[in-house]
Design a protein around this nucleic acid. Structure first.
Length: 440
DNA sequence: CGTCCACAGGAATGACGGGCGG
DNA sequence: CCGCCCGTCATTCCTGTGGACG
């Protein structure tokens, strides 16, 4: 655990050095300000999202039950597969990791052939990579691409058998995998244990989609969810406890008043009781306070933090979009700038083509753009609604949901698109599109 | 009452870069 | 080196469709 005090001492040392050099040193002022800055954070790591606390308030019951379900593995017999539901930030991942860590310690102490792996299916992304990570967990090296899935699967199974390992694997956000690739992999995985003595695979599936079950084949469902565990969102009061505990470790006493914590908890509770959000909010509020030279976090810092986090999320999501999605977004932006708030897909596509030719980029087919628009819809950047206009066909009415100035920031952060706004935007004859769009 | 618009969105297919084993 | 298998992005072709217009 890194101590802020060390850093502080170093800065102090630097300060003394600089002073010796004379007053005209350009760093002197910066360092002095850094020294004067009141310190709020005692330990920043505690407020990070990947931090696993020693105790999880209001989750003792879940920990106990998960531990019970997995306990047969400590006697080297197979435990049930487990299914965990609950929305984001309800402590699912933390509980699983917590229990895994504790079991791992015991297994190592007793020298049991018991291994644990945690895989996030959304981050791993494909069936192949999930399989590769399972292999990795039991010490089988596989290339990140090149082999057929069946081959990787066979290697996994035979290694499991050969080494008589029991692998308990958590597949987090498992719904993402099934939505994209179906439940084939899960089916195969649940069958791994058939005709096996010693060794085996145990799956702890985690999903934040409550309707996920419906996507599964009944056979898969029955073997996957032999046991179930449901996580409910935290209430505001529970969030307060969580934040208080974290705050006590992360901040110097007296820097974060309880009412600020209550506010953070209340805001997060409104948004589905997401603990991660609550912690982020408090952390950012403290950072803002610290940077502005305050010594006690106040309500206004929380409000600012709330704003910043929201904007940051949007910017992050939009600026990492592939080029053509950004061009579609830009087209929509231009339309909105010209007071066309609801455009039809035909109009958007026309503008899109125009923008592409101005940028010297080859335009994609309208079919492709159509799915790009759907993707933006799913991201919540825009909303599209199918409308029937009889004689005048069937289209989507597309509305930009993101505030224009935020979209503008994203466009300006892209080197290519920036040139469009800077120089070429006048060449667009948007009047034509306006008429085109109003041809209802 | 049937037509027919302007697309939606599914299916099939292909190009491509990456990476294996042999 | 080849042949094969991935996943991703894109195109082409296709069938489907609610309701204003004639």
């Amino acid at each position: 655990m890194k101590d802020d005090n060390n850093v502080f001492n170093k800065v102090e040392g630097l300060h003394l050095q600089l002073k010796k050099r004379g007053a005209d040193d350009p760093l002197l002022e910066v360092v002095e300000r850094a020294l004067q800055r009141p310190r709020i954070f005692k330990d920043r790591l505690v407020m990070r999202s990947d931090y696993i606390p020693d105790s999880l308030p209001h989750r003792a019951e879940h920990i106990r039950r998960l531990g019970e379900m997995l306990s047969p593995s400590l006697k080297l017999s197979r435990a049930s597969n487990i299914f965990i539901y609950g929305k984001t930030g309800t402590g699912k991942t933390a509980v699983v990791k917590y229990v895994f860590n504790r079991f791992k310690e015991i297994a190592e102490l007793q020298g049991l052939p018991l291994l644990f792996s945690y895989i996030n299916c959304r981050i791993s992304g494909t069936e192949y990579r999930v399989l590769a990570e399972l292999c990795d967990a039991i010490g089988v090296k596989v290339p990140f691409t090149g082999l057929s899935k069946a081959e990787v699967f066979n290697r996994f199974r035979s290694a499991l058998k050969e080494k008589s390992i029991i692998l308990i694997s958590c597949l987090d956000e498992i719904d993402v995998l099934v939505k994209n690739y179906g439940d084939n992999l899960l089916y195969e995985l649940t069958r791994v244990n058939e005709n096996f003595e010693g060794g085996g695979l145990n799956i702890v599936g985690v999903s934040n989609d409550l309707h996920f079950k419906e996507l599964l084949d009944p056979r898969v469902l029955s073997s996957l969810s032999e046991e179930e565990l449901v996580f409910h969102p935290y209430t505001a009061l529970e969030l307060v406890d969580i934040l208080l505990e974290r705050a006590a470790k992360a901040f110097y006493s007296g820097t974060v008043p309880e009412e600020v914590i209550r506010l953070c908890a209340a805001i997060a509770a409104q948004e589905h009781g997401d603990a991660r959000r609550a912690i982020d909010l408090l952390r950012v509020a403290a950072e803002i306070c610290e940077r502005s030279g305050g010594s006690v976090v106040e309500e206004k810092h929380v409000r600012l933090a709330q704003n910043m986090i929201e904007k940051g999320r949007v910017f992050e999501a939009l600026s990492t979009l592939p080029l053509h999605s950004k061009i579609v977004l830009t087209s929509l932006y231009l339309l909105v700038k010209n007071d066309i708030l609801n455009s039809f897909s035909g109009t958007v596509y026309e503008v899109y083509r125009e923008v592409c030719s101005l940028l010297g980029v080859e335009a994609l087919s309208s079919r492709r753009v159509s799915t790009l628009i759907s993707e933006l819809d799913m991201l919540g950047v825009l909303s599209s609604e199918i409308v029937n206009m009889g004689r005048y066909g069937r289209t989507r009415r597309i509305t930009l949901l993101t505030p224009v100035d935020e979209v503008e920031q994203v466009i300006k952060s892209d080197d290519l698109l920036k040139t469009l706004l800077d120089h070429k935007v006048n060449f667009l004859k948007l009047e034509n599109f306006k008429k085109y769009n109003e041809k209802t």
